[in-house]
């Protein structure tokens, strides 16, 4: 198990009900973690509509998670 910190924005923040959380997970990759959280919290967006950032930078879904990392799952953007 490793401990990760997650920040939520926009639709994911509303569906999770909090802006951030720290949790223990056995997920090996960012993609596995999102799948775990999606089934736990009923997130409507599938991973293929999201991007992920690890420690403040865009990262691939198969990036390995290490203890203490900070993740942000990025819903479809709509700036401007």
């Amino acid at each position: 198990m490793k401990t990760v910190r997650i920040q939520y924005f926009a639709l994911l923040r509303e569906q999770r009900g909090v802006g951030q959380e720290t949790l223990a997970t056995a997920a090996a990759t960012a993609g596995e973690l999102y799948a775990e959280l999606r089934s736990r919290h009923g997130f409507t967006l599938p991973a293929d509509r999201l991007r992920v950032a690890i420690n403040g930078e865009f990262a691939p879904w198969d990036a390995s998670l290490t203890d203490g990392v900070e993740l942000v799952f990025i819903p479809p953007v709509a700036g401007g």
Binding site: F9, A10, L11, R51, A53, V72, I74, P75, V77, A78, G79, G80
Partner: peptide
């Protein structure tokens, strides 16, 4: 910016 910034 519209396509890439993490802004919602």
């Amino acid at each position: 910016a519209k396509a890439r910034l993490p802004v919602w």
